[in-house]
């Protein structure tokens, strides 16, 4: 009997420790939003921060089905949107968002979750500085080349 009690109390103590460690970890969760990105100036993402932290992949996952198969591009969740808003610039050059010191890369490294969206998806807004809608508008207006050449000119 004494043995059983001892074992039970040991388990209880270790459980408490584990929980305590969890709480400490949770308190230490850093803010990974990179200063200087557009997101840094906003109060929250398209959903409250807590919800985004837990659910962002769910949002993008459902989005990928509706976008790829149904052609829906107008909803508030989009990976291109993540990149657009959370990107930060080193001078003129955007920093790829999956780099270990950038928004997606840093948090995924911390949480040790594999991040392979950017095997295929652009990790910087590309062409630079224009979201898809604006690109479409430019093409429709027939000024795309002009805009691009203007941008390319910046480097010279």
């Amino acid at each position: 009997m004494a043995k059983v009690l001892l074992r039970a109390s040991l388990v209880a103590v270790s459980l408490v420790w584990v929980l305590a460690a969890q709480t400490v970890l949770a308190a230490e969760v850093k803010r990974y939003v990179v200063e200087g990105s557009r997101a840094a100036e906003l109060d929250s993402c398209v959903e409250p921060t807590e919800r985004m932290r837990r659910m962002h992949f769910e949002f993008i996952k459902h989005q990928r089905i509706s976008t790829v198969h149904e052609g829906i591009r107008g909803t508030k969740y989009s990976l291109a949107g993540c990149v657009e808003c959370h990107i930060s610039y080193d001078g003129q050059q955007p920093e790829p968002i999956n780099q270990p010191d950038q928004f997606c890369g840093a948090c995924h490294a911390y949480a040790a979750v594999d991040l392979n969206c950017f095997d295929c998806h652009a990790s910087v807004p590309n062409p630079q500085g224009l979201d898809a809608e604006a690109q479409a508008a430019h093409r429709a207006a027939g000024v795309e080349k002009l805009v691009q050449s203007g941008r390319n000119g910046e480097g010279h």
């Binding site: 052609g71 829906i72 591009r73 107008g74 909803t75 224009l130 898809a132 809608e133 604006a134 479409a136 508008a137 430019h138 429709a140 207006a141 000024v143 002009l146 805009v147 050449s149 203007g150 941008r151 000119g153 910046e154």
Partner: peptide, 26 residues
């Protein structure tokens, strides 16, 4: 470059009126 971008932003809504669907698809 900037001017063209701005022109496009101004012109775009007008252009979309002529296209089949108003972008982007929902």
């Amino acid at each position: 470059g900037v001017a063209a971008g701005m022109t496009a932003a101004v012109v775009a809504p007008g252009v979309f009126l002529h296209s089949v669907a108003a972008a982007p698809r929902s």
